[in-house]
């Protein structure tokens, strides 16, 4: 008798077979991960807010909104392309679904490149984790932590899109798997909706 059979004996059949909220297990796992990750980002943003509020000489180094506006547009559009990919996968059009998933990954790469270019610009102006030419040194640590955590998620998302997309194309994964990686991608987009106003727009030089 296997360990799984022994475990089954301790529970009623209903407890072992019913899926919580009638959601597929992988999807529920992704939702639980998203809830946990929401807390991580929320903690970072609340800590950032605490520092910004309590520090009188908080810098306002951003002179232009063009770069962040383009990055926002790209990330929001990538959520739409992801949705199209999932919809076409559910309709059974494998080639199109794979193409839209790769377009989403490409938009993620463009976003990451623009983000890194912005980082390099700020580093070039003298901003590091501990000092900057405009005000309190806390700004660099806070900025790089929040945006760094986000760009890490974007890069992880691009890798996940490539891996799941290729396996979907090869027939190892199904439309449901694309939907699950899509949930993660929408979450990355969702976090950006809070990072933009608090980290960029509230620190615009007027």
């Amino acid at each position: 008798m296997s360990q799984a059979d022994l475990t089954m004996q301790g529970h009623s059949a209903g407890m072992m077979t019913d899926r919580p909220f009638a959601i597929p297990t992988k999807k529920l796992a992704m939702w639980l991960f998203i809830i946990a990750d929401t807390m991580t980002f929320a903690a970072c943003l609340v800590a950032y807010g605490f520092l910004r509020n309590a520090t009188p000489d908080w810098p306002r180094p951003f002179h232009s909104i063009v770069n962040v506006a383009i990055m926002t547009f790209i990330l929001l559009t990538s959520s739409l392309t992801m949705l199209i990919g999932v919809q076409t996968a559910k309709a059974g059009d494998k080639a199109k679904a794979f193409r839209w998933t790769m377009i989403t990954a490409l938009l993620g790469v463009v976003f990451a490149v623009l983000h890194i270019r912005e980082w390099l610009g700020l580093i070039g102006e003298g901003m590091t984790l501990f000092k900057n030419p405009w005000g309190t040194g806390l700004f660099g640590a806070a900025f790089f932590t929040v945006t760094g955590l986000h760009i890490t998620h974007v890069i992880a998302g691009v890798i996940a899109l490539l891996a799941v997309g290729l396996r979907y194309k090869n027939g190892r994964y199904h439309a449901d798997d694309l939907e699950i990686v899509g949930l993660y991608w929408h979450f990355v987009d969702l976090v950006w909706m809070f990072v933009v106003p608090f980290v960029y727009l509230l620190n615009l030089a007027h």
């Binding site: 909104i65 506006a69 926002t72 547009f73 929001l76 559009t77 959520s79 739409l80 909706m193 933009v196 106003p197 727009l201 509230l202 615009l204 007027h206």
Partner: peptide, 17 residues
């Protein structure tokens, strides 16, 4: 939904000014 979200994102940029 996408255009609504884009409009809301644009509104944040308007508020910034």
């Amino acid at each position: 939904v996408y255009f609504c979200i884009l409009a809301l994102a644009a509104l944040q940029f308007v508020i910034a000014y």
